[in-house]
Design a protein around this nucleic acid. Structure first.
Lengths: 175, 175
DNA sequence: TCCTGTTTTCAGTAAATTCTGAAAACTTAG
DNA sequence: CTAAGTTTTCAGAATTTACTGAAAACAGGA
């Protein structure tokens, strides 16, 4: 029979593993999960204690999470310490993560591909035809992804995604 | 003035960096990029030489890529060595990657969340109400993602994604 | 101003991941 | 079967990444 704390720990550890599969470091993901499951904001001490990690590590993880826009710092009046919370709505959370990953990974890749394409086009047509073709396809692929992303973003994806989810559920029931 | 090889190298290195941001190791991503840009299949020796890595490393990277379904082994008649190619269509490639990541990351996460949810539901209603709420939201989020994925999969995403790309392009031009 | 509690920084250490290279295993030809 | 060419495996080395903890910096309060 699992206690609440054991269940929380399981979720937090798993989230940490997932994070490290995704280029986000384990601790950062764990801190995020801990805050996500916490009803009230936590201070650095709480986090240290819950996750058994050093003060410095907490500080670095929080800095990163803040830079992603996933965590916000709270000054609680009368309190000397800072408190932290995370975005609690999963759809908004998903949107933030998508935005950041696009910015950090997709955009630079598109730039690189455009540059490469430009360079490839200065070459004699006889040379590198296949490479040109493939780089172009890759570029189109990423650009389409960005278009889809922007479209969702423009239409307030919260509602769109929720609707989509509901629609698919109905469809599943009726089929 | 960049040569063809220099351009290829740039793309390959960048793809490697992206890979390591995504929990795929650098070498594996580089091998993938090299094959993707190669008109003809390559053998282990070619790869070693192009990427300046050891034979063992090539072998391991290929094994992984094959297990992802991104690379296939070719027996060329009259040749003793094995040759390797990768899926050349970007849309299919994207689909394969999505399928694998779902299998390796999303499915286990959903299982874990379902388990946690079940455990949380055996607890007295007064305890862990917030945690229950949040785990449930997370679960719905991932389940919706899977539903969307399945829907795309069922409809042969090649065409759907290409169409979507085209549609968005038209929309952009007309707005 | 100084004092106290707090957060941040960062050099050094620890841990995890990746890579090498040589040996073993496998494969095909003769 | 043996030999030669090729791939795989894996222990240890190298590299990269993450973490600690102590010192520095910071932020009120008195």
């Amino acid at each position: 029979m699992a206690t609440l704390d054991q269940i929380k720990e399981k979720v937090i550890l798993h989230w940490g593993e997932m994070g490290s599969l995704w280029g986000i470091n384990r601790t950062m993901a764990q801190v995020h999960a801990l805050l996500f499951l916490s009803d009230e904001p936590l201070c650095a001490n709480d986090i240290m204690e819950e996750l058994q990690i050093s003060r410095g590590n907490v500080s670095m993880a929080l800095r990163e999470l803040i830079s992603w826009g996933l965590v916000t710092r709270l000054h609680i009046k009368g309190e000397r310490r800072e408190y932290y919370t995370t975005e609690k709505d999963v759809w908004t959370m998903g949107r933030i993560i998508a935005r950041e990953r696009k910015k950090r990974e997709v955009d630079p890749t598109i730039n690189m591909l455009r540059e490469s394409m430009a360079e490839l086009e200065t070459m004699p047509p006889s040379e590198g035809a296949y490479e040109r073709e493939q780089v172009k396809n890759l570029l189109t692929f990423f650009e389409t992804g960005v278009d889809v992303y922007k479209d969702l973003e423009a239409h307030k994806p919260n509602s769109i995604l929720k609707l989509l989810g509901a629609a698919l559920k109905v469809k599943k029931l009726s089929s």
